[in-house]
Design a protein around this nucleic acid. Structure first.
Ligand SMILES: [Zn+2]
Length: 259
DNA sequence: GGCACTGTTTATAC
DNA sequence: CGTATAAACAGTGC
């Protein structure tokens, strides 16, 4: 479930763990991944993030770009440790290695010399300006939840946090963006910053098998407000949380206090 | 066994 | 052009 908070957690942990270290190679385990060659044995100079993309920047001009998709995670292990099941690639250092474990095999890794991903709101955990997105929303007809999931609009929000944010903002996931008022956009802005920050502080949400770089579970699953809470009592009113499909995704909300 | 469901994105069809 | 659906894959739960 790597969404923005999970990927940001890895970015921070990787920064502490491998910046300044020498990469001795990248081993591709899953043959479906196109092979590539790292030039020489470069140093890691920075770990960057664009939405859910992670970039390992090297001092040879190359960059390793990783997207964990549904079930990918990264694990820091001693160099001589046996690889876990579903390992797909391994980034090798002198004494440690970073392995990508990914049962569903959707995660991607690429070696590039330049990379960028643009979005209307680049880092919603830090800043969520409302003027441009409200303008774009005014001319769209999609439900707000689908709109928040579009990565070229808001980089990094995924299905779980979209549900959580809209609960905090007291807005129905099905409400059309063209019908949102200025005040509602401001509530979405505040709720996004708040929930994503809590997600990051919690080192993510382990509703399934998510683990951080050190194999530890996150803590946000203990704080979930609506996600996976179908049939349970709303924390804000006397309503009961419902689940409905929206664009094929499970969508959790309180029908009585989200309008 | 069968079917629904799961964190994401993208190609393809309309 | 925007929007909707299927597909990539493997596991889990009913
Ligand atoms: Zn409620």
């Amino acid at each position: 479930m790597p969404e923005l908070p999970e990927v940001e957690t890895l970015r921070r942990q990787l920064t502490d763990a491998v910046v300044g270290k020498t990469i001795s190679g990248v081993e591709i385990i899953d043959a479906i991944i196109p092979p590539f060659t790292v030039n020489g044995t470069p140093l890691v100079i920075e770990i960057r993030r664009w939405g859910k993309y992670l970039g390992i920047c090297l001092n040879n001009g190359q960059q390793i770009i990783i997207h964990l998709r549904m079930t990918g995670n990264l694990l820091l292990l001693p160099a001589d440790e046996t690889l876990p099941a579903h390992s797909r690639f391994v980034i090798l250092f002198n004494e440690v290695k970073v392995v990508c474990r990914d049962p569903r095999r959707f995660a991607t890794i690429d070696l590039v010399t330049s990379f960028t991903k643009n979005a209307l709101i680049e880092n919603p955990a830090v800043s969520f300006p409302t003027v441009a997105i409200a303008h774009k929303g005014a001319s769209a007809s999609s439900p707000i939840k689908q709109f928040l999931l579009r990565q070229e609009i808001v980089a990094g929000i995924g299905n779980i946090y979209a549900c959580e944010i809209l609960f905090v903002a007291r807005i129905s996931p099905f409400k059309k963006t063209s019908e949102l008022t200025r005040g509602e956009w401001l509530r979405i802005s505040k709720a996004s910053a708040k929930i994503l920050a809590i997600g990051i502080e919690s080192r993510g949400v382990s509703v399934s098998d998510w683990r951080d770089l050190f194999g530890e579970k996150g803590k946000y699953q203990e704080k979930l407000l609506v996600y996976k809470r179908k049939g349970e009592k709303c924390h804000r009113c006397s309503g009961i949380i419902e689940r409905k499909a929206l664009a094929g995704r499970g969508t959790f909300f309180c029908p009585s206090c989200q309008r």
